[in-house]
């Protein structure tokens, strides 16, 4: 799954650690999602979308 997390975070000038704290996850979780190594659970994906005030499909989209 592709995502725009890195871009959205950069637009707000947040570090990975700051975003992780806002989401209640570890910094490595944010890093792994941004680099495509890990796809978040549905509740976390919704939390991310809600944090950026976007619909979930505006943050995540299936590959291919």
């Amino acid at each position: 799954m592709r995502n725009r997390l890195r871009v959205l975070r950069a637009e707000r000038s947040w570090s990975q650690g700051e975003l992780a704290d806002r989401l209640g996850v570890s910094r490595q979780t944010v890093n792994a999602i941004e680099t495509g190594r890990y796809d978040p659970s549905l509740p976390l994906a919704f939390s991310i979308a809600r944090l950026f005030d976007l619909a979930i499909e505006q943050v995540f989209e299936p590959e291919g």
């Binding site: 570090s15 650690g17 700051e18 992780a20 704290d21 209640g24 996850v25 570890s26 910094r27 490595q28 979780t29």
Partner: peptide, 13 residues
């Protein structure tokens, strides 16, 4: 904000 989520662990972890 001081990050509490260093590495693979959150503060609670």
């Amino acid at each position: 904000m001081k990050p509490s989520s260093a590495g693979f662990h959150t503060g609670r972890d």
